[in-house]
Amino acid sequence: MDSAMIIGIINIIIIGTTPLIFAAIGELVAEKSGVLNLGLEGMMLVGAVSAFVTLVITGSYFMALIVSLISGLLMSGFFAFLVLYLIANQVASGLALTIFGIGISSMIGKNYIGTPIEGLSPYFFVIMSFVIVILVGYFFKKTKTGLIIKAVGESHNSAHSLGFNVIKIRFLSILFGGAMSALAGFYISICYAPMWQEGMIAGRGWIALALVVFATWNPERVLLGAYIFGGVAIIQMNLQAFGVKFPGQFFNMMPYLVTIIVLVIISGNKLRIKLSAPACLTIPFNKNQ
């Protein structure tokens, strides 16, 4: 391997990893506030298809981005309404969001499969992914709002007694997660692919979910984890392309396996799980109760 090839591979890794970072950092914020949204895959698909269709119709990348973000806000807003106002089960609501997203995205995109578009350069978004992670890290460590979100995720009853509006804070955190998932979808259908294909998110939503756990809810570690997960997947694909024979499936299992191992390490110890996972994750809140 010469240096040009190494640079080439690094380039592919960076481009391929960026959507994982967007989706995971959005989910991280939602989970920090105490809400587990399993709808990532669905929101990413809808974000991807709405961006693609808008681009084909209007020819405007800006419009595509806006419509994609709106789709993410709508999907996550609906989820938030269910779990926050109707006190629905978060796990089931998130799965419903993913199942619905898989279906509705392929219905919206059925006439756009194979439509050629001119892709957008990914590098602006690559830089943006780093900036967002740093901002979110700063937000949780240094700003009052960040600390309030963490408080709501750790103990919604105490936060409520202190006069914070738990529902509103969670709603906004979920919306942020939805917008970031949609951005990841936009990036995949407009910059990375660039095309629309049914189910094109191909499990990245679940990897992003695993990533949040792997990062033990720490924004900067999302970056590290995303590059490890993304790097392994891409090196595996490239080695296959060079004719190296080995079962790539075992490489693809890595993110899931590592996440289970991380869960075992942090969950076995009461103090450690308290320090990593938001204590109120998946627990519903009703102030009238």
Binding site: G42, A88, I99, F100, G103, E198
Partner: peptide
């Protein structure tokens, strides 16, 4: 000529409404 994944739309909807 609707993609077969439309079934998922209905499955998602029914779960949403049930949870609601």
């Amino acid at each position: 000529q609707i993609p077969a994944s439309v079934g998922f739309v209905f499955q998602g909807l029914v779960l949403f409404f049930l949870l609601g």
